[in-house]
């Protein structure tokens, strides 16, 4: 019996992995996928197809919802010979990246592939993203204004 907590943890790991794949640059993901030499025998059930999503914001940042524009999104759904289905969604129009991401999503639900994918694809992608984020944060931090006050006279 799988407890509710365990199921939630599994879902959360999958959600996080899909987010890492969606945010990965296409070239990097394709390269890591090729290096990992995982089976590429999934059947495409849907797509990869590009469409639009309408982006939403909130008035004042936290108020009522409004639509403020659209973005291109590509999605794909694949099925492994074992029957496991994988999905992928990502901003942009990179169809090959999204098809591969869907295959990875399907494979990582299989216990025999989860560790390999974690080690050869997801960990390097997380590292890369964290490094890029940190570099940008540090560059931004260097433009922080350090106010100081000039005091004149004795009192």
């Amino acid at each position: 019996m799988v407890s509710r907590q365990e199921r939630q943890a599994v879902t959360e790991r999958r959600r996080e992995a899909m987010a890492v794949l969606a945010e990965a640059p296409g070239k990097t993901l394709i390269h890591l996928w090729q290096e990992a030499r995982l089976p590429d025998d999934a059947v495409v059930l849907r797509g990869p197809e590009t469409g639009l999503v309408t982006l939403r914001g909130r008035m004042g940042g936290g108020g009522a919802v409004f639509n403020f524009g659209e973005a291109t999104v590509t999605r794909a759904t694949v099925k492994l010979p074992s029957g496991t289905v994988g999905h992928a969604y990502a901003l942009g129009r990179e169809t090959q990246k999204v098809r591969i991401a869907a295959v990875i999503d399907a494979l990582r639900q299989r216990p025999e592939f989860e560790a390999v994918i974690e080690e050869k694809i997801l960990t390097p992608l997380r590292h890369r993203q964290a490094e890029a984020d940190e570099a940008r944060r540090a560059e931004t931090a260097a433009t922080r204004v350090d106010f100081f006050t000039m005091v004149r006279g004795e009192d």
Binding site: T11, E12, R14, R15, M18, A19, A22, E23, V53, L55, G57, G60, G61, A71, V73, T77, H87, Y89, A90, L91, G92
Partner: peptide, 25 residues
């Protein structure tokens, strides 16, 4: 900012990626 969407085939919000925006209060 991160963009997420709810889709019928998954029971959790899917992250689509990030977009750059400017906000003015």
């Amino acid at each position: 900012v991160e963009v997420e969407i709810d889709v019928p085939e998954l029971d959790f919000p899917v992250t689509l990626g990030r977009i750059r925006v400017t906000e003015c209060q």
